[in-house]
């Protein structure tokens, strides 16, 4: 296993795209977060906005790059035929997948933590100027605050889980473009479909199983009662999606020819 980890780390480290993609995760997440923080204002007490969530809006953008990074870690090997070499060197295929998952997780964890920290810091600086002040009932964003810490840590874990989901899907379909299409479809389509469903039960159901909507519930710090699903439970839903995709990938990896 240690060997497999070393192999995967070397592969990912030496591919030129990895550094750029990790930089893009940070840059795009922060950019959208800053843009949103600058665009949203709070006009008075009880304006209904959630400052932690606003400053972390960029996660919706950054996750797309995380998906690319994770999909390429598998899809890239299949498109070049490299996967056969990999399996010849390390015949335990589940070890290869586990190693890939670990390396991706660590990389996304680092990039995600950087992105989230900078986003929260930017929100802390920008938001008070837009009316998110003590007078309007909003404390300055601070990681010492329990719910804000949960939002921040949860957002990092969210990105890691999106990476694992993408890795699993890519292992199942073995084609980078298709895998990206499926992952982004899973993430972005649920909210669109939920918007046209007028049965409140189905609406709640869709929101609870949607990997993005449920997963991002972890960012909420206000109005927790109105959430379709609790913060950690929501992240758990995304965790189930990721676990399902990874186990399907692992199973198919054992059964299929490379």
């Amino acid at each position: 296993m240690k060997e497999a980890l070393h192999v995967e780390w070397t592969k990912l480290r030496t591919v030129a795209g990895t550094v750029w993609l990790l930089a893009a995760v940070v840059l795009l997440t922060v950019a959208l977060g800053v843009a949103t923080s600058a665009a949203v204002s709070c006009s008075g007490v009880g304006c209904g906005q959630d400052p932690a969530k606003i400053s972390l809006t960029g996660i919706a953008f950054g996750q797309a790059v995380v998906a690319v990074l994770a999909v390429l870690a598998v899809g890239g090997e299949y498109s070049t035929g490299m996967i056969r070499v990999t399996f010849a060197a390390i015949p335990r295929r589940s070890a290869v997948l586990a190693a890939k998952a670990s390396v991706i997780s660590v990389l996304v964890l680092v990039a995600g933590a950087t992105a989230v920290l900078v986003s929260v810091l930017a929100g802390r600086i920008i938001l008070p100027g837009n009316g998110f002040t003590e007078a309007n009932g909003h404390a300055v964003l601070s990681l010492a605050d329990g719910p804000v810490l949960r939002a921040a840590v949860g957002s990092v874990l969210y990105l890691v889980l999106v990476g694992l989901l993408s890795l699993g899907v890519a292992t199942v379909v073995r084609d980078a473009a298709t895998a990206i299409g499926i992952v982004l479809g899973l993430l972005y389509l649920f909210p669109v479909v939920a918007a046209v469903v007028s049965d409140p039960d189905w609406f709640d159901r869709l929101q609870r199983i949607s990997p993005m909507t449920a997963g991002l519930a972890v960012q909420a710090t206000t109005n927790l009662d109105s959430l379709p699903i609790g913060p950690w439970a929501g992240l758990g839903v995304l965790g189930l999606w990721a676990a399902g995709a990874l186990s399907a990938g692992g199973l198919l990896l054992r059964l299929r020819d490379a």
């Binding site: 690319v68 390429l72 990206i180």
Partner: peptide, 8 residues
Amino acid sequence: RRSAGAVT
């Protein structure tokens, strides 16, 4: 020239 990037 890369499908994953283009699709994303």
